[in-house]
Design a binder for these strands. Structure first.
Length: 414
RNA sequence: CGGGGUGUAGCGCAGUUGGCUAGCGCGCAGCGUUCGGGACGCUGAGGUCGGGAGUUCAAGUCUCCCCACCCCGACCA
């Protein structure tokens, strides 16, 4: 991709009125644009990152048997009456009448929909367990949208639903899902910590949240520095400086961004919708369910809160919008080595953004820092026939031939 | 929903006790010179001053109402 033709128009200064780091950097670097509070467009760069995150999520969820579907956001009131949640969620659900006076809601979540979908098709223990998920937009009329991508009113969510014969089978899958979740967060470059949390009004059982420790977070976490124990302060009997019940170390306090959660739903929804199966003895049993959420957009925000410096974003290699940012600083346009490098990267499947704009070197370098692509290659008269390679995170710089650059890239993105 | 802050060109801002045709920097278009950390000169385009009502000879500026955005809190299947 030639940068002069790419829709990336950075701002000299971060937008006024934004305080949160992810909002400042993402808007300044042309990844997202705000339409209203808590509602954002993903521009070409931003969508690339979002798609990378989604691809990792899909891989990991497919690995634990997930089958992808796509449910509607628009839903009839009657669906929500089955669980009495039309009234219960009326503060947060966008509810309206269409032209024929039908009451419609924009989905805040999809437990009702998924249960209504599977109830008539699943009749036997032989059909269980199975796992359906989607990546789809949710709508929540948040009283206060805030912090850029951290709390939005329209936002993407990966929601997975699992269906089981009994608690025991659910528990087994629940554990598998934890592992998949840790994989996902680590692959997008985040250290996550799993905590017990309240299930809210929704389930009496505790749920588990995956938190990324960050001052930008809204949750308050008590955790062990060895990461073997953590609880949301809402429900914790421990406080800062108490001893860790597992290892005895002194517990610490931090704010956290909730990037994922998993809930055991039990039979609340299956009973409300009449989702039953016949067990081996021919007896009718309610399907046991759980749900598992991750917000890819929020994840993107969290990545920036953790990975940035004074000059801009530092994308972890797993999600970087392009693998390579090629910058041509030569006085003479159309430098042959730059073109050769560009095509070689393409041929080797390294997505490359090629800055061949007719602007001063300072602008190109500042923009590259801000945009934050993991690897930068510089072609310049100063370097003669060598290519300069710099990693965005460590700033480590080295000089290479084209062949050796490709080797480095293969090693880095293995 | 309570409290606080902000709103003037695409972006960032200035605009005095109300007073001439509303300015500056960046960006944008044209020409020339520059070229490894946001270069320079000249020329040019770009404005419902968030919206409405009011006071006044006169409102970006004063009064009232409303709207939007940001922050704190409440809320957060």
């Amino acid at each position: 991709m030639y940068q002069s033709h790419y829709f990336v128009k950075t701002l000299r200064e971060p937008p006024k009125n934004e305080v949160s780091i992810n909002a400042k950097l993402l808007e300044q670097a042309c990844y997202i644009q705000k339409l209203m509070a808590g509602v954002y467009t993903y521009l070409p760069l931003g969508l690339r990152v979002l798609n990378n995150i989604n691809a990792i999520i899909r891989e990991e969820i497919n690995n634990i048997g997930g089958q992808e579907i796509y449910m509607p956001a628009m839903q009839p009131k009657e669906l929500w009456d089955k669980t009495n949640r039309w009234e219960e969620l009326s503060n947060i659900m966008y509810q309206f009448k269409d032209k024929s006076d039908h009451l419609i809601g924009l989905a805040t979540t999809h437990e009702e929909t998924i249960t209504s979908i599977i109830k008539d098709r699943i009749n036997s223990y032989k059909d269980l367990p199975f796992y359906l998920y989607q990546i789809q937009d949710k709508f929540r009329n948040e009283p206060r949208a805030k912090s850029g991508l951290i709390r939005g009113r329209e936002f993407a969510m990966k929601d997975l639903y699992s269906f089981h014969q009994d608690e025991e089978d659910l528990d087994e899958y629940y554990k598998k899902s934890m592992k998949a979740y840790f994989n996902i967060f680590s692959r997008v470059g985040l250290k996550s910590i799993m905590i017990e949390a309240s299930g809210g009004a929704f389930t009496k059982q505790y749920s588990h949240e995956f938190q990324v420790l960050s001052e930008a977070g809204e949750d308050r976490i008590i955790y062990c520095p060895k990461y073997d124990f953590a609880q949301n302060i809402e429900i914790s009997k421990f406080k800062e400086e108490d001893k860790c019940p597992k290892c005895g170390r002194l517990l610490k306090f931090s704010k956290g961004i909730e990037v994922g959660n998993i809930f055991k739903l039990g039979t609340r929804f299956s009973q409300a919708f009449g989702a039953y199966y016949l067990d081996k003895t021919g007896k009718k049993q309610p399907i046991v369910m759980a749900s598992y959420g991750i917000g890819p957009g929020r994840l993107m925000g969290a990545i920036i809160e953790v990975h940035h410096d004074n000059n801009g974003i530092i994308w972890p290699p797993g999600v970087t919008p392009f693998k390579v940012h090629l910058i041509d600083l030569c006085k003479q346009k159309n430098n042959p080595l730059a073109k050769k490098t560009y095509h070689a990267c393409q041929e080797n499947n390294f997505d490359i953004l090629y800055d061949e704009r007719d602007v001063s070197p300072g602008i190109k370098l500042k923009d590259a820092d801000l945009i934050g692509i993991s690897v930068r290659l510089i072609i310049s008269d100063k370097n003669k026939d060598k290519i300069e390679l710099t990693y965005r995170d460590t700033k480590e710089t080295s000089h290479h031939s084209l062949v050796s650059v490709l080797k480095e890239l293969k090693k880095y993105y293995k």
